[in-house]
Design a binder for these strands. Structure first.
Length: 203
DNA sequence: GTATGGATTGTC
DNA sequence: ACAATCCATACT
């Protein structure tokens, strides 16, 4: 039986959580529908020491407030005025840290994801559209219909949560994070983790 | 009120 | 390689 990740899973060092989230299953329930995807790429952000983090230097705004709350909640923000990004809050309340979910492998309700991404039936998608369904932070939120309505969602609840189904036959690779060149020394932190050779990892 | 730039994506 | 696109933030 797959098991829902509990609060203590998230209440640990962010880099450890980022690695351990790989292979887990992200679930979003919308009414009767259930969308699922396996997490294949993550990035860690730790406000206390990380100039790339929105909450660096204890920067508390309306947007970042949830990052300073208890772990196991969703931080959803809008990037470039267009796309949404999903983060999972980690460590202890007040610390300001989280994990960006950068890519998933679709598992369930691919028909709905096709409609959410392209407004088309799954059978009408070409090869490239299929490959690009959820292989990026903005793409997966669009496919799973994760929006600012999910801001602050408690992942121990029943709307948005993460399952451990025991999948662990993979190797973890790491690299520098994507698009944080402005972050001075923090741009070189190797805090991006992904499942080696998985086709759904971002480009 | 105004200016600035971004934890991205799609197209050229 | 670069434009699209607009919200959140910082500053006046």
């Amino acid at each position: 039986m797959p098991k829902k990740l509990n609060r203590s899973f998230y209440a640990r060092n962010t880099v450890e959580v980022a690695k351990d989230l790989l292979g887990k299953v992200l679930v979003h329930r919308i009414g009767e529908k259930e969308l699922k995807g396996r997490i294949v790429e993550t990035e860690a952000y730790i406000g206390a020491i990380d100039k790339a983090a929105h909450c660096y230097n204890n920067r508390r705004t309306e947007r970042t407030e949830v990052m300073f709350g208890p772990p196991g909640h969703a931080y959803v923000y809008i990037i470039y005025g267009i796309y949404h990004c999903l983060n999972i809050i980690t460590q202890k309340e007040g610390e300001g840290a989280g994990v960006l979910i950068r890519a998933i492998e679709p598992i369930k309700s691919l028909e709905q994801m096709a409609v959410n991404r392209y407004g088309k039936d799954l059978s009408e998608l070409n090869k490239r559209q299929l490959k690009n369904l959820t292989n990026g932070p903005g793409k997966l939120t669009m496919a799973m219909k994760i929006t600012k309505k999910n801001y602050g969602d408690d992942l121990t609840g029943d709307r948005l949560f993460i399952l451990d189904d025991g999948y662990k036959s993979f190797k973890i690779a790491k690299s520098k994070r994507i698009n944080v060149d402005y972050a001075e020394e923090a741009k070189d932190f190797e805090w991006r983790f992904f499942i080696k050779d998985n086709p759904c990892v971002s480009k």
